[in-house]
Design a protein around this nucleic acid. Structure first.
Lengths: 254, 254
DNA sequence: AATACACCTTTACGCAACGTTAAGGTCAAT
DNA sequence: ATTGACCTTAACGTTGCGTAAAGGTGTATT
């Protein structure tokens, strides 16, 4: 039997456009072209199309299908394994998404009745997630995998009281820093108090303290747009001011 | 604080292209344009961008985000519910895909060791699925939901022996039909034997037999490209020949 | 022979959300 | 005056087709 595009399309349950497209991308060429320029397909092409549609239904992209079917040296089984891995990854992402959407809906409807402890754990996880997303890659490169993991571990192990203490400290830093900024003197008492509070805050996260690391972090607050924006939110220049204060505090600069 | 595209991009951890694109589609306009034509964003825009990115991470498309954020009468919670439904549907599809890919891999590696019974059940299910995919919609429209369901039920309840009998019958029909086709006479003995075998085969699927329905099916074998292709596979014209034979067999035509 | 109608052809835009050049202005520092 | 780091708009590419548009072919009917 020979088939024109439409006959083949009906046979396979797809559109003629699809068939022409498959010709276009070279994945399914007609057996021949007749004198009027019509595409004519034979039994071999029907079989090939079945194969293509089979892989298509498994969600394999046409380019990969092409490789699987054209290159005989290509390992079809391995390609499917790869494909499966991609699908599983996709499902993981999707599960995360779904969980987040559900959470958001629940929160919006106000019918979230978590215990304080659960809420607290939720906060911690959310913070870690956000942190990872925003700075994860660079921080890991800068400080090393181990340091970051230790820091996160320390954070995860915080009690509710410690967490409250640390958020309180954060507020104190911000406030003191804002007041110090008004004085304009990074060596002044207020600025040094801010730097000290900042150190205390930091020690909730860092496995160990060093002046050099503290000063380095202060420099990053200025260099990195995202950190800078956080400190400059109310008053532009605050990030620089904090750096100066910390440089003095750590004795790197008088 | 004021931000140019790059500052805002760094702050939010996205690309400048994205920011310009969001301007282009009107989802995030700059606070103002300076004398050089630069986009300038303020705190309000930063907050708005955060919102946008929040929804984006939930997988909401930009068009929906636009609706959620611009139209205050728009019900954000409802939109999220809708979105969640879509995501769940997507996951269902994905799970199906994954199961199929796994099955395929297992089959390819030949490490599928099913019992004969399991294998048989698998065959039946696969046939039903394929049938559903290929003809499902039209058949249901033509014969009604109930008839189709009854037929499928009958098929599902087949024992292995019955199934083997029916596949054997199918082969007999094909063979007898091919021989009858050579005689060219749809009224001849062979053709009538083919029609009779076809009836017997059919009765494995249909809840009840009627001459009219049998003749109607024969007509469809000619009208529908897919059925026609099945019968014409070896010899074009076979579908028409079978129809004629059945019309005689059922007494609709002498 | 003309016409209708169901086929067939190629060309090309549209879709989502940007990535990626390309070509060219602006700004601050050297 | 020249870098170099910014900024701008314009436009193509990505995936797998759907959907016209404009025009040729084949066959049956009038």
């Amino acid at each position: 039997m020979e088939y024109t595009v439409q006959k083949l399309a009906n046979l396979a349950g797809i559109s003629t456009r699809t068939i022409r497209y498959y010709d276009e991308i070279g994945i399914l060429k007609p057996a021949r072209i007749n004198s009027s320029g019509y595409r004519i397909y034979g039994q071999r092409e029907v079989d090939r199309l079945q194969q293509i549609l089979f892989y298509r239904e498994l969600g394999v992209c046409l380019d990969d299908i092409k490789s699987i079917m054209t290159d005989p040296s290509f390992d079809g089984a391995k390609a499917l394994e790869e494909h499966l891995k991609k699908l599983l990854e996709k499902r993981k992402q999707l599960d995360l998404l779904i969980a987040n959407v559900k959470k958001t809906i629940a929160a919006k409807e106000g019918r979230i009745h978590m215990s304080d402890k659960e809420k607290f754990e939720g906060f911690k996880n959310k913070m870690l997630e956000e942190n990872e997303k925003k700075y994860g890659k660079e921080i890991r490169e800068k400080y090393g995998e181990e340091v970051v993991e230790k820091s996160n571990e320390k954070f995860r192990n915080m009690t509710k009281e410690q967490y409250e203490e640390v958020t309180h400290l954060e507020k104190q830093v911000t406030q003191t820093l804002a007041e110090a900024f008004k004085t304009g003197d990074p060596k002044g008492e207020l600025a040094q108090k801010a730097a000290d509070l900042h150190k205390k805050w930091l020690m909730y996260f860092w496995p160990e303290y060093s002046k050099e690391a503290h000063a380095g972090l202060a420099q990053m607050y200025v260099d990195d747009e995202r950190f800078k924006a956080y400190y400059d939110k109310e008053q532009p220049g605050t990030a620089e001011f904090l750096r100066e204060a910390i440089l003095v505090y750590t004795g790197i600069k008088q």
